[in-house]
């Protein structure tokens, strides 16, 4: 088993980050074209704890090296199952994901969290990411290690792109929310806009 982990901070509040997180792979993010679809499978709020649980299916275009892809069966997309838990009382988002494609050969289990940075809880958010990669293929220790290594390398590359892409989403989202607030303010002041019901 190999482990990849990293911490990174975003200069946005936890509320902004946790909202934009739902749009992370949308059109505002130009850095993660390998994520081709994100579907919601179920969603519910626990009445006792207030925790929002969401199940999603994330579809990725295959970016594994060709030799590895052929070894794994040559499919062009892979799917990841993710459950996320938003705990608004404790201001914490936890996302757990696992690969559904090739999971008899390779297990990738990832846990990510978003929580306020303790030194600036209203302005900064900490992102923690940890992934455990385990390859299963009989006694072929060398191939096993190589697959694990390459998967971790891929994680490193995608983590950097993921951060850049998410920064784009956060920036756009802040802009759009500001515009909406401005429009609302204008609407309240203007009779014509009020009638137009924008």
């Amino acid at each position: 088993m190999k482990i990849f982990q990293q911490n990174t901070e975003f200069d946005y509040s936890w509320e902004e980050v946790s909202t934009s997180n739902w749009q992370k792979y949308g059109p505002w993010n130009e850095k993660t074209p390998h994520v081709v679809a994100v579907d919601t499978l179920s969603r519910n709020v626990d009445p006792e704890t207030g925790i929002l649980r969401t199940e999603r299916l994330i579809t990725c275009k295959q970016s594994a090296p060709r030799w590895l892809n052929q070894f794994l069966g040559g499919q062009d997309t892979s799917v990841v199952y993710e459950t996320s838990y938003v705990d608004p009382a404790n201001k914490k988002v936890t996302m757990c994901s696992m690969n559904l494609t090739w999971n008899d050969l390779l297990s990738v289990r990832e846990t990510c969290t978003y929580s306020p940075v303790s030194s600036a809880p209203n302005a900064k958010t900490l992102f923690h990411q940890r992934a455990e990669v385990t390859a299963f293929c009989g006694g072929w220790q060398k191939i096993k290690s190589k697959i694990e290594e390459m998967t971790v390398e891929r994680f490193q590359q995608n983590a950097a792109k993921g951060r850049e892409g998410f920064e784009m989403v956060l920036e756009m989202s802040r802009k759009v929310f500001a515009e909406q607030r401005e429009l609302l303010r204008l609407q309240q002041d203007s009779q014509i806009l009020k009638q137009a019901q924008i």
Binding site: Y25, G26, A37, V38, D39, L57
Partner: peptide, 9 residues
């Protein structure tokens, strides 16, 4: 927002 894996959806 992102697309669905099923374009019809």
């Amino acid at each position: 927002m992102s697309a669905s894996l099923a374009p019809e959806c």
